[in-house]
Nucleic acid binder design. Structure first.
Lengths: 333, 333
DNA sequence: GGCGATGATGTAACTAGTTTCACGTAACTA
DNA sequence: TAGTTACGTGAAACTAGTTACATCATCGCC
């Protein structure tokens, strides 16, 4: 147990002042013989410098803060890996908090990160913390908002997002190319990204002379809601006199549930109904599921790079989605 | 920009000493009128206390450190979620580092966590950092080793693991119950858990009068190696004059690759070959894949609870695996 | 041999708070 | 009314370091 070894203990052991020890460790001008004595003392006492103290003097820590909505989603997981990769390359650690999709929790988490004086902050949550991230950016803490843009951002407040409208348009053109015309959409809540994707899909279909009725879009949050939504979409198609020939899922988080809901009804993909979803994932290739992929890993990397590089203005990065065509839409060879 | 607001600024604004501000914030005996004045100053100046300074005085921070081998594995991801859940409930943040399966990196990461004076540390990596975690535990930082046990642990050094031998035995008995007798194993490297699972499987089979030849176990690390391993296992089966009727995968990380390798060869599961793997995952139910599940989320929770509760002795928790029977082994109704 | 330049080191002030101790005031008791 | 107690508060010491500044010995140069 006992007290931890401090720089003072090392200084006493080596017969020098704490200033000299500090200089040895951080590379100041020290005589070689002294440096050797100090390093010996460091080793003998197993001294581990206190990074907290160092940070308080530097004004901020070297850790990168990340507030994630939901670690379950493949998008956020890949994002996290990208962030972590860059952090590791820059000798930074990542301080992590999950908000479990609780809106009220994200403000508290962002505040906690601010209290920890993180070097920069990457936030994937909603607008609830916008006022605080603005203030943090103004006070010198780089903040990066992921998966959403912010109006009129101050310097130091950046955003990284996907061209969601284009993602929707890609869906529309691909489905049309696969000769599908009656589309149903499973969406997730009212996040901007979800709305934009649906809007892009609607516009893309309209450009091709196809329509997407209001009741062909249903929001769901969990497995059972998705199952009900799929049922309702199919029923609405029949009621409309034009049975669905395609189901689109606008979030990777609900892919399993949506696909399973179709399978559970004995619906053959793609013969009965085409299936198209967001975000590539390991099993997609195996299952032949066509997806609209976003470069989530790269987005994570860029977010962390913004924190590390601290550009002085405000950067808005928009990534382009990519269609990964496989077989679930009845693709022609 | 400008300097950050300090407790001194708040004190000046409220016309009191820094000691009084500190007491107001942390709950000492303060007159109500003074407290009100201080809180007003805090709000007016948008004061955010510096958690680093607080931690240096407390001797350690309130963050929980986590060093993960590989975020890609479903096991580690669920573990992480369990840890995060408990951390959030205890107003702790999680400091995270991924070692990307680089053995040399994990010592550096553990050291970095020690320098950050984490409240406790959860480590899922190899033996390389054992000496350091022992020392940390002896000096008062609770350490939890996950997915491995440690010989002769000092107080404050805990371990959480799965009964891997039992996991292997469960595989053996289930395969036998499904009338499979020629088993091939895809394993991952030389980690203790992998070896124990294979050993349990071998013993379980032996108890049932079945054998597991040396060349029926092949290690692989990535997708292409898994594909080659599956090919080699099948060939060895034929060479032995007893074609394989079951493939077992001892790590969830390689499930996709192993399953895909079979599918790519046009092998029908379970009609041609039974498939059994570790760790439940979202698509398993959909695909009918039978798995041996470990309570990874619960293990994460318990690990974090050990950090939060700091029992004074050394705790060794061993969790029991559970068979989740579906259809991939040709299960009889 | 005296002079300024250089290099190594210690002293002390600083970071942003927390906490102990001492003091003054006010209320309560004898 | 005097003595005791409790309460609120500030000064100062403390945490674990970093850094500006001063000191001093040594060295090369004229």
């Amino acid at each position: 147990m006992g007290r931890r070894v401090t720089i003072g203990d090392v200084a006493a052991e080596a017969g020098v002042s704490t200033a000299t020890v500090s200089r040895v460790i951080n590379g100041g001008t020290v005589a070689e013989a002294t440096a050797t004595r100090v390093w010996e003392a460091v080793t003998r006492l197993e001294y581990t410098p206190n990074a907290l103290t160092r940070s308080i003097f530097a004004g901020r820590s070297s850790t990168i803060g990340v507030v994630i909505r939901d670690l379950n989603s493949p998008f956020y997981l890949d994002l996290m890996r990208g962030i972590d990769e860059v952090a590791a390359a820059n000798d930074s650690l990542v301080m992590f908090a999950n908000t479990f999709r609780h809106v009220d929790r994200d403000l508290a988490q962002v505040r906690a990160m601010d209290e920890q004086r993180v070097r920069g902050l990457i936030v994937t949550t909603g607008e609830g913390s916008d006022k605080l991230t603005r203030r943090m950016a103004e006070r010198g803490t780089t903040c990066v908002i992921v998966a959403r843009t912010v109006p009129d951002p101050p310097p130091g407040l950046h955003s990284i997002s996907l061209n969601n409208v284009e993602a929707g348009r890609l869906m529309a053109t691909h489905l049309a190319a696969c000769e599908r015309s009656a589309v149903g959409v499973v969406s997730s809540g009212g996040r901007p990204s979800q709305i934009e994707r649906t809007e892009g899909l609607r516009r893309g279909l309209a450009d091709l002379g196809l329509s997407l009725p209001e009741d062909a879009v249903i929001a769901a949050e969990n497995d059972s809601e998705v199952d009900r939504a799929v049922g309702a979409l199919l029923a609405a198609g029949h009621a409309r006199g034009k049975p669905l020939d395609a189901i689109v899922c606008t979030t990777g988080r609900l892919t399993v549930a949506a696909y399973s809901a179709l399978a559970a009804r004995g619906i053959a993909i793609p013969d009965d109904i085409a299936f198209l979803t967001m975000d590539d994932f390991p099993w997609a290739a195996m299952l032949g599921i066509t997806v609209i992929d976003q470069p989530s890993y790269e987005m994570g990397r860029r977010a962390a790079e913004l924190v590390v590089d601290t550009p002085s203005d405000s950067v808005e990065l928009v990534f382009e989605p990519a269609l990964v065509a496989r077989t679930s839409c009845g693709e022609k060879k």
